[in-house]
């Protein structure tokens, strides 16, 4: 076979255009743009936020589609073609240095996002995301509107739930610490309120709890647990001051199950997210013990009622000021 200029140029270009026919023209003809059931159009603020998302390269760290195999945020809604109808451009993303955002709408209230965009480590201490404070207002507001729209109608449902619970949470905080704590407790199922921390607050457990606290809780609730973390000034209601729970010792009430439930489930309407995706059981019990011991000065760990000790449990007696009689469990 002799390569002539005609063969090398016209021939190879014909083969290339055959590929264009298959991989470009056929999809352009056959791919339908029917909106999915979740789809809705964007508002002007959401469109402005999407524009910022595109122009600032958010897509280099965040994807916008959930795969069949995903377990993380949004795993309950696999992406459909119709989710992207009319989006211009729909940038799917190629990396997940940060989480997928396609179902992020309504995961958090707006004030969480304002703190997060100002400095992502205010709400997520381990984040690698740059600060976007320089964008200023209304850019951060528009970006928040866009992120809150991700998931479309499903996001609207979640956003409405955030708003539904925000009002009573703000009202409770305004009522002072007693009202606030009572309201918070009223949202926890009774079984959890009557539950002590079932696991010993050994030195190792407290160290594990501290690491979790530093990685997840620190910048809202603060290094001494007084709710005065760096994010506090952005949040309404502000983060809980744990020291207000010291009264529980005098009142003979438990904190273990209470902490566990609120960490697991979050408090929708406030900036307190649920952590059940990220922290498995032992980590939540450990951070509960850490918070109780360091910020409240006591823990109910080891207090009845409780079951048979887990196999690993060392001999441990609750040396912290406790509801339990000292040395109850040799």
């Amino acid at each position: 076979m002799k390569m002539t200029p005609a063969l090398a140029m016209v021939g190879s270009l014909l083969v290339f255009w055959a590929s264009v026919l298959v991989a470009i023209i056929l999809p352009a003809i056959t791919m339908t743009e029917t909106p999915s059931t979740a789809w809705r159009p964007w508002t002007s603020a959401e469109t402005a936020g999407h524009d910022l998302y595109v122009k600032n390269g958010c897509s280099y760290c965040h994807s916008l589609y959930v795969r069949v195999s995903d377990w993380d945020l949004g795993a309950d809604r696999i992406a459909e073609r119709g989710d992207y109808a009319g989006q211009n451009p729909a940038i799917l993303g190629t990396e997940r240095t940060g989480p997928d955002l396609s179902q992020d709408g309504g995961e958090h209230p707006d004030d969480w996002h304002w703190a997060h965009f100002t400095n992502p480590r205010y709400t997520r201490p381990l984040s690698l995301m740059p600060s976007w404070e320089f964008l200023g207002w209304p850019a951060v507001s528009n970006l928040t509107a866009y992120v809150q729209s991700l998931g479309s109608r499903d996001a609207d449902y979640r956003v409405a739930r955030q708003q539904r619970w925000k009002a009573p949470a703000v009202r409770a905080y305004a009522g002072g610490p007693d009202v606030n704590v009572d309201w918070l407790h009223a949202q926890v199922p009774a079984g959890w309120l009557a539950m002590p921390n079932p696991y010993p607050a050994t030195e190792a457990a407290l160290q594990r709890g501290q690491k979790i606290y530093e990685g997840f809780c620190l910048n809202c609730h603060g290094p001494v647990g007084d709710g005065q973390g760096v994010a506090e000034k952005y949040l309404s209601p502000p983060p809980l001051n744990f020291t207000t729970l010291k009264r529980h010792l005098a009142q003979g009430r438990y904190v273990g199950g209470l902490f566990y439930y609120q960490i697991m489930n979050g408090i929708t309407g406030t900036a307190m997210p649920y952590f059940k995706h990220e922290l498995e059981s032992e980590k939540i019990w450990d951070v509960s013990n850490f918070m109780a011991v360091r910020f409240l000065g006591y823990t109910d760990a080891g207090t009845a009622p409780r079951g048979i000790e887990a196999a690993y449990e060392p001999a441990w007696s609750n040396a912290f000021q406790s509801l339990a009689p000292k040395g109850v469990r040799p």
């Binding site: 600032n56 390269g57 280099y60 760290c61 984040s127």
Partner: peptide, 21 residues
């Protein structure tokens, strides 16, 4: 940026999403 995200904190033209492209 991926080692120390606040190394060039709030320098608009050096933010990751703008330098990577």
């Amino acid at each position: 940026h991926l080692v120390a995200p606040e190394f060039f904190n709030n320098v608009p033209f050096l933010v990751f999403g703008r330098t990577r492209p």
